[in-house]
Write a protein that binds this DNA or RNA. Structure first.
Lengths: 245, 245
DNA sequence: CGGTCACTTGATCGTCTTCAATACCAGTGG
DNA sequence: CCACTGGTATTGAAGACGATCAAGTGACCG
């Protein structure tokens, strides 16, 4: 393949103003711990990058040179076994911070699902920044704590829930995250494929497809078209997700 | 039941000297981020508690009033579904810090496996301490990052590995943690029951028992008595754990 | 149009679960 | 001393859930 066909990351050589000042993702990201006045210091370390769908911008096991902050789009985070079995550990959307690890190699891979934009910071330089801005360190701890809680919830799902409960849990979580501020939408996009959902829930494509069909026939959800999901009966879905019925 | 029979936590009314100064777990815990001179401030907030085997000292869903630091023994951390299905998310030994969560309720329960000692700190007071000692906050972030990596590894196990691979992974992890400083021991205690192992690996007691028997007959491990494990062929076990063969 | 890709649906298979019986040990009390 | 109990572990037989194998559809695209 030629370099063009592999769709490498496009580096936007941010010539003009402060990229952080106009960042859509700032309110929901860790960067909001840094005041307006000090943003330029952060911006000086920042490199804005665009990843095309399917592009892997973090590879498990490679030297961990950067931290990442997603500002647009969605990426899947995953780990692989030697024979190709894959476990998606999470989906990262705008505001998510990636690369938190003490190890000197990445513990997971990340691949863009949609056109995805992210900032990256050299690890060593960010360390100094954290020293100067303890508020950002506190914010990172907050983020990491929340992710830890989510990871434990996912362990419960993977270890103890049935396929039906897993799908319900997944859809309910999407539903809850569909609008950050209290308000939820019943109709929202489903950017991941059946294969991605399967690898996230520890199932196969076929089981995901079958189970979605069942939930649809029961009237709990609807899938009017590819990539679109409608929550028709949120209460019932939450009950299923919790293991009742 | 009477209060005596339920074996409640015994509060050691630490009358004498600084508990932190003589703490065995300090080198491996987050407290080592605080210098000798400031230890007294930490000690003033600390309450040393002893938990008998089987005692639940953190309950999922209850108001999160404290942080915890295990200093001796082992505890299992777990989440429950309404019908009683249980997922153990980890085992906490000396040096482990518990309770990192932004939520105002605990996200998991913790139960002592052996006689277990821990320190507890009121949440609100520790916040002030973290403000004054950024080094401790940095240390907590480090701990949380490591736990996050471990959690992702566990997701891979629960979502994609076979029973055989799960057991091998579990035993290899125990093996690696058997001695912190490089040196590993081939014989070490196995304080958890088959039920605990099953709930940690997303299996049943019977499958755990059967699989251990197979590994034993293959000569990869030996179980000379209850609670004792011998790693006979670490290399082969690691291969199985990694999904090869 | 042929090609690929994502998805759905059906039939069969296999791993792990479930149900059940047995053994073992420690503690307790007749 | 020994029966009785409760907890833990092992082992066997049957069953179920999800995986695997396979076929077919529709959308998109060169």
């Amino acid at each position: 393949m030629s370099a063009v066909l592999t769709r490498p990351t496009l580096l936007e050589s941010q010539p003009a103003a402060d990229p952080c000042a106009h960042c859509d993702a700032r309110p929901s990201s860790v960067c909001n711990a840094i005041g307006e006045r000090d943003l330029s210091r952060l911006a000086a370390l920042t490199q804005v990058v665009e990843a095309a769908p399917g592009h892997t911008f973090i590879s498990e096991g490679e030297p961990a040179s950067h931290f990442f902050n997603i500002t647009r789009g969605t990426a899947k985070l995953f780990k692989l076994l030697p024979d190709g079995r894959r476990q998606i550990t999470g989906f990262a959307t705008a505001g998510h911070f990636l690369g938190l690890a003490v190890s000197d190699t990445y513990a997971f891979s990340a691949e863009a699902l949609e056109p995805t934009r992210y900032c990256r910071f050299p690890r060593n330089k960010l360390r100094g920044l954290l020293r100067d801005f303890p508020a950002m360190e506190a914010r990172l701890l907050e983020v990491a704590s929340n992710e830890l809680v989510a990871a434990q919830e996912q362990m419960l799902l993977l270890g103890r829930k049935t396929a039906r409960e897993r799908l319900a849990s997944f859809l309910v979580t999407l539903y809850r995250h569909s609008a950050p501020c209290g308000r939820t939408r019943t109709r929202f996009p489903l950017p991941m494929t059946r294969g991605d959902i399967a690898d996230y829930l520890g199932l196969t494509i076929e089981t995901v497809s079958r189970t979605l069909t069942v939930l649809r026939k029961e009237g709990l959800i609807d899938i009017p078209g590819p990539g679109v999901l409608i929550i028709a009966n949120a209460a019932a879905l939450e009950r299923v997700a919790g293991g009742l019925n």
